[in-house]
Every structure is written in structure tokens, then in C-alpha cells.
């Protein structure tokens, strides 16, 4: 056995996601090819196809990967026995932290997922590729309303009130107009979201 530990398949996939994500976001989905990604990773095209059978599959996998990552983090916050208001702050902060650590995921979401809907039509329609995040947020909102912290309303307006500001903030960052890092706005943004959702 080799002394140098080989990367597991999952770890390798994670690496591919990171690189592909960046290239897609930088050059655009259609201007990026599988050989481009393989070259950037220093692996053969054939080997890359062992992980993903097509560029489309890779693109969808990136969405599922990000959803799982964020979903798991929100899950952890949902499990905590803390006030609803504090949970909002933690969700907001976590979202921006992930964006800080892995900015390519956010870039990908804004510049590939939202801009090339046709790629994601089959297999990623609706909430399919972002199910984990949506489910956790449903649980979060339901619990808040059940406890009487949130005002009763339809799911979608509440969902957009929660997620919309986060997307808006990272968009502004992408446009280089934010004087501070998004994470530094966490407190104020959480306060705004809380005031918008809370019961009267």
C-alpha cells in the first residue's frame, strides 16, 4: 500500500466541484468544457468522466452539493434549543461564512444556476436540487410559527423574506459595491428579517 493516502472518491469529487464551480462562474457555463476542467485539475479527461458522465451531470451535482452543505448547517441550527430570533442570526451568518470560505459556490449559484435554467430543466426542476435547504427552512419557519414567534402566512412570501436579502447581499458583493464583507452585516440583516417575519 502506498504511504501517501489517496483521496477518496468523495474528496476527489469535492475538489472537482470547487474547480468546476470557479471555471463555470468565471467563463460561463457554455464556454467551459470538460477538458478545460480536467486540465485545471491536472487530471485526464477520461478520469474526470469516471466521476461525472457529462458536463450537465456535473453542473447539477454542484447544486446538490451546495444544497447539502448549507442544508446540513441549517439542520444543526434547527436542532439547537435557542430563541427563534437567534436562529435567524445564525442562519444568516452561516450563509455568509460559507460564501466567504467557498465564494465559488455563491458565484456559481448566481451566474450559472440562475442564468442557465435550461441546463437544469431535467433533474433539477423545482426544488429538487436544493431540497435540503428548502426542507430545513420549512422546518425552521413552521417551528417559529408554531411557537407563536412568527406571523402566520403562506410559505413562499416567508421563504423569500428570509432568503431574498441573503441573495441580494451576495449579489452586491459580486458587483463590488459593498464596503464591508457580507458577514459583517449579519446582525442588521437578521434584525430586518426578524422584524419582517415576527408575530405582532
Amino acid at each position: 500500500m502506498s504511504k501517501i493516502r489517496k483521496l477518496t472518491k468523495e474528496e476527489r469529487k469535492k475538489e472537482i466541484v470547487k474547480v468546476a464551480c470557479r471555471l463555470f462562474a468565471e467563463r460561463g457555463y457554455y464556454n467551459t468544457t470538460i477538458p478545460d476542467i480536467a486540465e485545471e485539475l491536472g487530471m485526464s479527461v477520461g478520469n474526470l468522466y469516471n466521476y461525472f458522465r457529462s458536463k450537465e451531470e456535473l453542473a447539477k451535482y454542484i447544486m446538490q452539493y451546495s444544497s447539502k452543505l448549507l442544508g446540513e448547517e441549517i439542520h444543526k441550527i434547527n436542532q439547537q434549543d435557542i430563541p427563534t430570533k437567534e436562529k435567524i442570526y445564525k442562519i444568516v451568518r452561516k450563509f455568509f461564512e460559507i460564501g466567504q470560505e467557498q465564494p465559488e459556490l455563491i458565484e456559481y449559484f448566481l451566474r450559472v444556476f440562475l442564468s442557465n435554467r435550461e441546463v437544469f430543466e431535467e433533474g433539477c426542476e423545482g426544488f429538487l436540487c436544493v431540497q435540503e435547504v428548502v426542507t430545513e427552512l420549512m422546518l425552521f419557519l413552521e417551528e417559529g410559527a408554531r411557537k407563536g414567534d412568527f406571523r402566520q402566512q403562506d410559505f413562499f412570501p416567508a421563504f423569500v423574506t428570509l432568503m431574498g436579502p441573503l441573495g441580494g447581499m451576495v449579489f452586491l458583493q459580486g458587483e463590488n459595491v459593498l464596503p464591508k464583507e457580507p458577514v459583517e452585516y449579519s446582525q442588521e440583516l437578521a434584525e430586518n428579517i426578524w422584524r419582517a417575519l415576527k408575530a405582532d
Binding site: V134, T135, M138, L141, E142, Q152, Q153, F155
Partner: peptide, 21 residues
């Protein structure tokens, strides 16, 4: 009974997380 459009109770034997998924 729903909270923000999400059913408060879900079918017996399944967690709310699994049910919503």
C-alpha cells in the same frame, strides 16, 4: 392546521423533515 403553509402534523411514522422532503 398549518404554520407558514407547512402542516403542523405529518403522517404517523415519518419525521417532518422526511415528510417535507
Amino acid at each position: 392546521k398549518k404554520n407558514i403553509g407547512i402542516p403542523e402534523e405529518v403522517p404517523l411514522g415519518v419525521t417532518k423533515r422526511a415528510y417535507l422532503t
